[in-house]
């Protein structure tokens, strides 16, 4: 019990560093020149993706550390997954960024973890990360469904008028 609190404290103290590592790792999945652009430009309107990744990773990390419930986790991952759902990447890559958080924690706490302490606590922490990944998968699927729905909606916006005209028998084929 004591150990657990200690690990959590440790993580909270180093949250900023962990978040930065994680953010860097997520950005690094993009081509180098994109990485440079997104990392450099801090204006949230000139660089919305970079901004969302930066803010989003931090939000998720905080949620993980607080042991947030499923609903809160969903909310936290939505921003990032919404972006990745329409970018040129496979579904696994789109949600896989979550697992980079484990790497980030281990990298940041490498010295403390190396001597084998916190093994159980770390396992629990990683379970929480897994929960985030599942939430991300949910959101991803939801966003993909939304994209399909948007396709249909665009057509639907034409339909009342098309139907109206058909009913009055004036539509010409072709």
């Amino acid at each position: 019990m004591v150990e657990r609190a200690v690990l959590l404290d440790l993580l909270k103290r180093r949250a900023e560093a962990i978040a930065t590592r994680w953010y860097d790792a997520v950005l690094a999945e993009y081509p180098e020149q994109t990485y440079a652009a997104w990392k450099r430009e801090s204006n949230r309107f000139a660089n919305p993706v970079g901004h969302s990744l930066r803010a989003g990773t931090r939000t998720i990390l905080d949620a993980v550390l607080e042991g947030a419930d499923a609903e809160a986790l969903r909310g936290a991952v939505t921003d990032i997954v919404r972006i990745r759902a329409v970018q040129q990447m496979s579904p696994s890559a789109a949600v896989g960024f979550v697992f980079r958080l484990k790497d980030a924690i281990r990298a940041e706490l490498g010295d403390e973890l190396r001597n084998g302490s916190f093994r159980d606590e770390m396992a629990e922490m990683e379970q929480r990360v897994d929960a985030v990944a599942l939430a991300a998968f949910d959101v991803f699927a939801e966003q993909r469904e939304l994209v399909s729905e948007l396709r249909i909606n665009e057509l639907k916006r034409n339909i009342p008028w098309a139907t109206g005209r058909t009913n009055r028998g004036v539509v010409e084929p072709g």
């Binding site: 590592r21 860097d24 790792a25 950005l27 690094a28 999945e29 993009y30 081509p31 180098e32 994109t34 990485y35 440079a36 790497d103 980030a104 281990r106 990298a107 940041e108 490498g110 010295d111 973890l113």
Partner: peptide, 12 residues
């Protein structure tokens, strides 16, 4: 997880 390796995350 070698800390040193992970410090230097390089973009693809």
């Amino acid at each position: 997880y070698k800390k040193e390796e992970l410090v230097q995350i390089q973009p693809k």
